[in-house]
Design a protein around this nucleic acid. Structure first.
Lengths: 261, 261
DNA sequence: TAGTGGTCTAGACCACGGA
DNA sequence: CCGTGGTCTAGACCACTAT
């Protein structure tokens, strides 16, 4: 709908043709990835307006000196991110914006940090215990077997936000309390060479007990958000089981979904 | 870990070589998709056990009479679904299971139906109103402009589960109350040719007001799950804005996340 | 009919991981 | 070292959409 340049060619690929793409073939970064990043930057920066057609893939590949499959791979990655839409017989166009980052395996610490909330963490408990039935089932260990339990209180601006209780296979990694107080659990795990792959989450709510209310500086009976999560590494083995509670008055889950056709 | 057949060849691709794949080149279904479906079925069915290597892509393509890029495309789609993991220098293996369906733009109706909860719906309100500021912002219409508001009560086993309040652009589609009572809103929208593409959701919690408690058969102050959602079609235009409340005692959000590398 | 994306081929070289 | 997946090429034909 937005006119850009020569109206006679407005449909076939206006804004894109004015853009410069710098591809470095000597870089270890794949060409399709370089192109995808620059396209994404152009969209983010506003050089490509929502609704704009991208120009056909063949022309684009010729202009860039790439093969069409390589160009397609770049475009596809942005389609997967929800930034572009392909239409057969029409072309590829920029989505009408408002769409943002896709849902990720969210780290509360990262979320708060990104929001400029200056999170801090207190490690309340860190010890090896016998696995209860639910923990054993989630982590795939024997009931009564050893697991590490980690309990933390997360705060922003000195106010408590959540109580995080996590169970991990004892053999998995060394948990350094100091590091856990300065960053999130997931970063510590990643730094230990664990590549997180997927997670199963359940989000619910309930009223705070007397004890929970005290710890979170709420009234008894206040609404709490609850989350259970089991996270898996890239071989599909469970690496973490957590039961978290959040002050609903100070936190909500916010995320983006994409529909897979 | 599971032994399958000749132990001497157990590493290179045992289970797969015994499988038959039937590819129909005259079918309109793409070859990579046929292969992906049959691989997925083999995993679901247990013919491919978690941890099994798939055998290298070159051999597989020769055996199937396909090019390697086509085989890669099939495998990639299962990697995207979280069923397979690729490891350079090692091979492609089946994930250790437990991973299930990825997160989708969930329809409460479909969720309940899939769980065998026999959902029913009462359309409480359906009319054209002037858009308030938040609705106007979410749907991208002028404040005070016309929007359709739809309010429904969702029940399972005759018990109320949620109050669903949705706002839609008035021009978008005809809402048939009878159809809305027998299925979900998203199915009605899809049937009207609207292809949902993405959504932004916020999930929180709060205590029930007197009125909310009455409608949901809860006590005043009971914990409620809340959800705001704006859904977009494939051009990125907002097509629905909803504010939902759920009885936390009877419902929780359950979903699967995948980490994008 | 003309133009677009969707699919597919038959090769090639490279980077990484394990033995 | 060798085998694996990761990337890339230069074509080809088809299906769908708009005019």
């Amino acid at each position: 709908m937005a006119k850009t340049g020569d109206p006679a060619r407005a449909v076939t690929g206006p804004a894109l043709s004015a853009l410069e793409f710098a591809l470095d073939r000597s870089s270890p970064v794949p060409l399709y990835y370089q192109l995808a990043q620059q396209l994404e930057a152009a969209i983010e920066h506003g050089a490509l307006v929502p609704g704009n057609l991208l120009g056909n893939e063949v022309d684009l590949s010729v202009r860039l000196g790439l093969s069409r499959p390589t160009v397609r791979q770049a475009i596809q990655s942005l389609v997967d991110k929800g930034l572009l839409v392909r239409r057969r017989g029409v072309g590829t166009q920029v989505v009408h914006s408002q769409v943002r980052r896709p849902l990720e395996l969210s780290s509360l610490y990262d979320d708060l940090e990104a929001a400029g909330q200056g999170p801090t963490t207190q490690v309340v408990r860190k010890e090896v215990v016998a696995a209860s039935a639910d923990v054993a089932a989630a982590l795939g260990v024997a009931e009564g077997g050893e697991v590490t339990v980690l309990e933390r209180l997360r705060l922003t601006h000195g106010q408590p936000v959540a109580v995080l209780c996590n169970y991990l296979p004892t053999t998995l990694l060394d948990l350094d309390s100091a590091r856990l107080e300065s960053t999130g659990l997931y970063r510590v795990m990643r730094a230990s060479g664990i590549t997180l792959h997927s997670a199963r989450q359940t989000v619910g709510a309930r009223s705070a007990t007397r004890e929970e209310a005290d710890r979170l500086d709420e009234e008894e009976g206040a609404a709490l958000l609850t989350m259970w999560r089991t996270a898996y590494d890239d071989t599909g083995r469970p690496v973490e089981y957590g039961t978290h509670i959040y002050r609903a008055s100070r936190y909500a889950f916010d995320f983006q979904l994409l529909v897979r056709p």
